[in-house]
């Protein structure tokens, strides 16, 4: 019913062919997916992109077989603390990073294959009351953790064997950091957002906090996903999972904000919103952004209606929709590395791989 209404309501953007279903991961264990990701994996001299799926108690590695079929290679069992999310490490190989905890992240572990012992294993990287974490290029992991007295922001460089080679403390802002985003085009810069709705920028080499700027209340409860450096400006992609619908922007999933680090001034340049009157906004109302992911200039989000919507963030244009399927609502969506498409999962159902 929803699918039938999409085409006339969203006439200028989303077309079915923008997302092409390639395959479905059939998990015989019946466990509910909490996250999906991709990882470079090298075995027998062959380096390929593999899929990683996580349930609350296990993480599975899938390899491509013939005819768009995927087979499970190995499952790490993590029964003591629930898995919350997979943390992508953009250019690492044979390493999977996961966050575990109850309501908040309590520990971060690396899952890997050890050729020395010819076995799969996992090792602890960090524990604490972890508020935000991001994986960066060159096997670096940045996290913020909080005690009653203070906040710690730390970058860990991971070794190929899952240990930590080096730890660098970054200067924390006063407010709690809610998210980090790597800066495309600047290896040593890192962007973050705070609970008080500020954007912060660090120098990862020195640990200095270079700038903190409040982005205003037009964009409440901002979470940064990605940043791009261009012509002396940072273009930061934000989402607002806890925001109410605003009169100025309607039902917004993503904002692109231009931020001038030199002056500390910022300005919104593009909104990616749901078109008013979309059936995606119909009951269960109010339909809002739940969670999302950004790759290159494409943003994908799961809405409370159970649909996945994809936007071209540069134009603020909705370009593809996956309506809730008869078997259930979409619960998570992630871009694969290297432009390998979109992954979408249902809470009690399969994970599907789409070409975009």
């Amino acid at each position: 019913h929803v699918a039938e209404q999409l085409t006339p309501v969203l006439p200028d953007g989303p077309r079915e062919e923008n997302l092409q279903l390639m395959s479905e991961l059939k998990d015989s264990s019946g466990s509910c997916a909490v996250d999906v990701s991709t990882v470079w994996w090298e075995a027998a001299g062959c380096r390929e992109l593999r899929v990683v799926t996580a349930s609350e108690s296990s993480v599975s590695l899938w390899e491509p077989l013939t005819h768009n079929h995927w087979g499970k290679v190995y499952t790490w069992q993590l029964r003591e603390i629930p898995v919350i999310q997979i943390i992508p490490l953009p250019d690492s190989c044979n390493l999977v990073c996961v966050a575990l905890g109850e309501l908040e992240i309590g520990e971060i572990r690396i899952l890997l294959y050890s050729s020395e012992t010819d076995s799969f294993k996992h090792s602890l990287v960090k524990t604490g009351n972890i508020k935000a974490v991001v994986g960066l290029k060159e096997q670096r992991l940045v996290s913020s953790s909080r005690t009653l007295q203070e906040q710690q922001v730390e970058m860990v460089s991971l070794s190929g064997t899952g240990g930590s080679k080096d730890r660098q403390t970054l200067m924390p802002p006063k407010e709690t950091v809610t998210a980090f985003a790597e800066v495309e085009g600047m290896k040593e810069a890192l962007v973050g957002t705070t609970a008080a709705n500020s954007i912060v920028v660090w120098n990862l080499r020195t640990g200095q906090l270079l700038r903190k700027t409040h982005v205003g209340y037009s964009y409440p409860a901002s979470i940064c996903h990605r940043a791009y450096s261009d012509s002396g400006l940072l273009f930061v992609v934000l989402s607002h999972p806890h925001a109410e619908e605003s009169e100025s922007c309607g039902n917004t999933a993503f904002h692109v904000v231009a931020f001038n680090p030199s002056s500390g001034r910022s300005r919104g340049v593009m909104c990616s919103c749901l078109p008013p009157g979309s059936p995606l906004l119909m009951p269960p109302c109010p339909c809002r952004y739940l969670e999302g992911d950004v790759w290159d200039t494409a943003g994908a989000a799961v809405l409370t209606s159970g649909a996945v919507v994809v936007w071209d963030l540069l134009w603020g244009r909705c370009v593809a929709v996956l309506p809730p399927s008869p078997t259930g609502h979409w619960a998570l969506t992630r871009w694969a590395m290297a432009g390998a498409g979109l992954r979408a999962g249902q809470r009690d159902g399969p994970v599907r791989l789409y070409r975009y």
Binding site: M186, N203, T206, L210, A258, N260, P261, S262, S266
Partner: peptide, 23 residues
């Protein structure tokens, strides 16, 4: 965005802010 909106833009902002910020 015009320069008047966002203030003076510097292509070397990262180096300049790193030189000014507390270590």
């Amino acid at each position: 965005c015009s320069e008047s909106d966002l203030g003076p833009i510097s292509l070397n902002w990262f180096e300049e802010l790193s030189a000014e910020a507390p270590p």
